[in-house]
Design a protein around this nucleic acid. Structure first.
Lengths: 356, 356
DNA sequence: GTGAAAGCGCTAACAT
DNA sequence: ATGTTAGCGCTTTCAC
């Protein structure tokens, strides 16, 4: 079996307390004994048992991360940011995927609580109505949401202003000459951010005097976009010239489906996604999208919790800036595209103010 | 503070042993007391402390996963498979990313050992020469490699036959009429599987009597493919008509770079990747690739370890089958493409035999 | 500068 | 069917 701190103590002819002090650099230990102990450690290949330590210190130095799915690059990137931060602070990361199922959210949160993670980072379906978060609040366990759309005062979250981003999309599409917009979204019940994006999008479209864009929900798993698109493009006269998709994966599917329908993107219809996943820039046409700083979100969330656990009184970052990346998939509708927007490299900084 | 098993015992008027028995469904507990205890648990919102349990049972019910990066969908998908299996077996998953750095591999392995994970799943740079694996072997800690190319007898690994896959690529490209092949690969020092793919590719090209395809290494992080491609396509007479890329992300970059060089894929040059990441099917042209069953790999690895931990004597799956997905990016070179291969849906089952 | 001992929350004999 | 108790490996007062 693996050596214990007592084996080391015996081997070095000291007490366990001394070994512990050396391991944690807490308290004095004579330079000579230090050497003896270190040699014993090396000789036996001793690795302190973190479980024993955790039981004693009541901290696991572990962060729990709960995301809807890892197969979506947006979440994988955020987790990437979390692990990087955690690692250099000597923390570990446990992960769980919920498959966009709120029951799995509670379960994962419960499991992580039993595992006594020091804090959690999560994305839930609906932060206003979340048994998982209720659980954490009741237990007083520190957490930060990522991606979720809440006001910071409410439940701590590092995210972007999804409503502002949705509005920005409507504004830009309109600027490109589009008059008939439409939105295709994943299930709103699964995503509060999709709701915010829609609301901002619709509000801006309305205030610009456009017809209210139709909004279609699709099952993100089954991804039955074909039927929805058939419906949307049945009558050429009323067909939209621009499609706002609630996320990049969805946008990519939509572009594929339009291609099969022999509808040309962007010549006949513009498509813009949301998230800014990396491969978007490698697609043809290049994917237009709202870029979220996913990795930074994960980092910021971890950073905040780590500080808090270290006793520092840090405020959560709350709102990160988003960026519009006008890829080629949001090209001109007809010939309505203004000259000053023809540069695909055109980007525009999003708001980073802190209100809801 | 959170309630302990003793609080529950007191609250229910029983001993801690009884509470423990109820929690673990081990040993008898009267149906009447069971109710009292359960009520106490509910009343106090008690969650058993897994740390205490682990210290006592010497098992953490945790799997450690170490992969080069989470931002590569290939690894994210495998992790996805692992978490799914783990979850339904009551296990948890810790993750670490090494950034293709072998020093980080050892560090992560060491940390996971201190955390006392029950087993590990990992992808290393070189399984033949791996301090991380030496560490695990020395400690007798169960592990399975994924993606890594080893013979099963050597170090347990669930993977595909990368050499056979590389050969298959050469064979198919040749079947499409290509005579001048080339390979672009990530650093071989970082990836034993890239080496195997290359070797199989070159061997098949040779035995088919083709000129030895040039092989170019590129830095997978910096992704400086442009210079390499400039070099390859300097002289039209010797330029390759087909490019084999060691992974999909690389292939996508290559296609983008060729596009910027105004070299048409697949009209002027075919490109085929490796991995079979999901978005490949949504690209234009659709990405030709060798599909690895990533999620299944993660599942198989987890499954095997879980069985082993449960005391069952299970053999690791070792070799999973790969599939060739002949996307549009590997189209005809000139007009040499034979009629019977024109269907992009053409796929071919890979070997699943177990040899090296 | 070092040691002895209590205790973290749980499980698992062993008793009864 | 239930209780008592001795650890699991570590940290941390408190003495010396």
């Amino acid at each position: 079996m693996a050596a214990t701190i007592r084996d080391i103590a015996k081997e070095a002819g000291v007490s366990v307390a001394t070994v512990s002090r050396l391991l944690n650099k807490s308290g004095y230990v004579g330079s000579e004994t230090a050497v003896r102990v270190q040699q014993a450690i090396d000789r036996l290949g001793f690795r302190p048992n973190a479980i024993g330590r955790s039981l004693s210190t009541a901290e696991t130095r572990t962060l729990g991360v709960i995301v809807p799915a890892l197969s979506n690059p947006v979440f994988a990137d955020a987790v990437s940011g979390v692990t990087a931060c955690a690692r250099q602070a000597g923390y570990n990361v446990m992960i769980a995927a919920t498959n966009y199922d709120s029951a799995e959210e509670v379960e994962a949160a419960g499991v992580f609580m039993e595992r006594r993670v020091d804090a959690m980072i999560l994305t839930v379906a609906d932060p206003q109505q979340s048994p998982a978060l209720d659980l954490l609040d009741a237990a007083g366990l520190p957490y930060v949401l990522i991606y979720n759309q809440t006001s910071c005062a409410d439940r701590p979250a590092v995210t972007i202003d999804n409503a502002a981003a949705g509005a920005e999309v409507a504004r830009v599409l309109q600027g490109l000459g589009h008059r008939r917009l439409a939105m295709i979204s994943g299930r709103f019940a699964d995503s509060d951010r999709a709701i915010a994006r829609r609301d901002g999008f619709l509000a801006e479209a309305r205030s610009a005097g456009l017809d209210a864009p139709p909004v279609h929900e699709v099952d993100f798993i089954a991804l039955n976009v074909d039927t929805v698109l058939k419906e949307l493009f049945r009558a050429p006269a009323t067909a939209p010239t621009a499609l706002f998709c609630s996320n990049d994966l969805l946008a990519i599917s939509v572009i594929g489906a339009l291609d099969r329908m022999e509808i040309d993107v962007p010549r006949e219809v513009s498509v813009i996604g949301f998230d800014g996943i990396a491969i978007g820039t490698h697609l043809h046409p290049t994917l237009a999208t709202v870029v979220q700083p996913s990795r930074e979100m994960g980092e910021a969330a971890a950073q905040f919790l780590l500080r808090r656990l270290a006793g520092e009184e840090a405020a959560p970052p709350c709102r990160l800036p988003f960026t519009l990346r006008l890829g080629e998939s949001a090209g001109p509708a007809g010939n309505a595209r203004p000259a000053d927007l023809q540069d695909p490299a055109y980007t525009r900084e999003g708001d980073s103010h802190d209100d809801q």
